[in-house]
Design a binder for these strands. Structure first.
Lengths: 115, 115
DNA sequence: CAGTATCCAAAGGGATACTG
DNA sequence: CAGTATCCCTTTGGATACTG
């Protein structure tokens, strides 16, 4: 078995790494899932309902998601201004990941509780 | 809209958190994917072919995966001893996550390269 | 070979105060 | 309200040497 054969598909490795890098951070899945369900959320909503984290961290997570084209940031002309976040169309590509992650998580919770 | 209605299903939140905790660490997906493909790998193989990381980190990742019932560790009666790792049956529950992650990663690589 | 031990640098992330 | 700035602690992970 030579090295060439042994290495798994390089593309797949890179794909995993890319996806992992994108989804790194403790709260991205949770944010995406909340946006999937509620469609439109204000910064404050995300902070209070979705994830209980400091504004600094939430801000960073949101910026990364936006940079990766998964969410859209919209400034509302209110007083004081508010900012809405929604999923992009492109974000539907990531739904299978989240869905399967939740499914596994549910199974795993039961499994671990058995012990 | 009261809080009760607003909060997404608590179970789902917990599921996400559980799954995320389990899969935290830079190399778990890669390890699982390699084991899925090659079925049986030695510590050394994992280190050289799957992930290029220090033995300390690899060891830690493997222990966490084993503790979470996803892989099996088998000591081989060789000289010097070798240790084989394989996926458990239970690990098939996590395949959809990995598969969808790879699929998304492949799409995302192309998407990002466009920019 | 399969780890463990040690050391260390960098990243992650929480709390709080502050600004436009 | 929606962030940014600052401070600081914890975790993560890499390199290397060492042991059974």
């Amino acid at each position: 078995m030579d090295n060439q054969m042994f290495d798994i598909d390089k593309e797949q490795k890179l794909a995993i790494n890319d996806a992992m890098e994108l989804l790194s951070g403790k709260w991205k899945f949770c944010i995406l899932h909340n946006l999937y369900i509620y469609e439109n959320m204000l910064f404050k909503d995300l902070q209070e309902k979705a994830v209980k984290i400091s504004p600094k961290v939430l801000s960073k997570e949101l910026q990364e998601l936006e940079r990766n084209l998964l969410i859209t940031r919209t400034v509302n002309d209110t007083k004081p201004i508010t900012v809405s976040y929604t999923l992009t169309d492109y974000a539907k590509n990531i739904q299978p990941v989240i869905r399967s992650l939740i499914e596994f998580g549910l199974v795993h919770r039961r499994k671990i509780k058995e012990k």
